[in-house]
Amino acid sequence: MSNESANSSGTSAARARGRVVGVPKRCWCGELVVSLISKSAANPYRRYYRCAFAAENRLSNDNHTYQWVDEALVDETEALKFRLGILEQIIVDERAEEEKKKCAEFEMKLETEVFSRMEDAITEPKGRSRK
């Protein structure tokens, strides 16, 4: 029988070529990956991804891409969560930088205004005393 029964209960992986993370697009051999439905007794009607070449030639125990759809989608979701976390951190960092710049600008305005008022306050009594 084909790989759908050989990998019926274990985790799916492209054994010799490394584990495929997420939804596979192409097999290591260059062939497209197709979605099929298992007909095995252990996993009836469970969907899986398979290398089109290996599926067409009914290869079993090979190194071509084979991955359960549900596992691939969980992997894809986890990868997207990770990327979303990175993007959120970038946004938070950018906002923090913008806030720092705004605070620095506001601080400079305040210092300029305070110095201006202090200078006016200092020069005003000098002008009164001379009269």
Rank of each mutant, 00 (worst) to 15 (best):
S2N: 11
N3S: 09
E4A: 06
E4D: 15
S5I: 14
A6L: 11
A6Q: 04
N7K: 11
N7E: 06
S9L: 13
S9W: 10
G10T: 13
T11H: 13
A13E: 11
R15N: 08
R15S: 10
G18D: 01
G18Y: 02
R19S: 03
V20M: 01
V20E: 01
P24A: 03
K25D: 07
K25N: 12
R26I: 03
C27F: 04
W28E: 02
W28D: 00
G30P: 03
E31D: 12
L32D: 06
L32G: 08
V33A: 06
V33M: 04
V34K: 02
L36H: 06
S38A: 08
S38K: 03
K39I: 07
N43K: 15
P44T: 12
Y45M: 06
R46F: 02
R46S: 09
Y48P: 01
Y49V: 09
R50S: 10
R50N: 06
R50F: 10
F53L: 11
E56Q: 09
R58L: 14
R58H: 10
R58D: 09
L59V: 07
L59P: 00
S60K: 13
D62E: 04
N63P: 02
H64F: 12
Y66T: 01
Y66P: 00
V69Q: 14
E71R: 11
A72S: 15
A72K: 02
L73V: 07
D75N: 12
D75E: 04
D75G: 01
D75W: 08
E76T: 03
E76D: 15
T77P: 00
T77R: 15
E78I: 09
E78R: 15
E78N: 14
L80G: 03
L80T: 09
K81G: 01
F82V: 07
G85W: 05
L87T: 07
Q89N: 13
I90N: 07
A96H: 05
E98S: 13
E98H: 08
E98A: 13
E99T: 08
E99R: 13
E99I: 10
K100M: 05
K101H: 07
K102A: 10
C103D: 04
E105K: 08
F106N: 04
F106P: 00
E107T: 11
E107N: 05
L110T: 08
E111D: 07
E111M: 09
T112L: 04
E113G: 00
R117A: 05
R117H: 11
M118F: 05
D120T: 06
A121K: 06
A121C: 08
I122G: 01
T123S: 13
T123E: 11
K126A: 13
K126V: 14
R128W: 15
R128P: 00
R130C: 09
K131L: 12
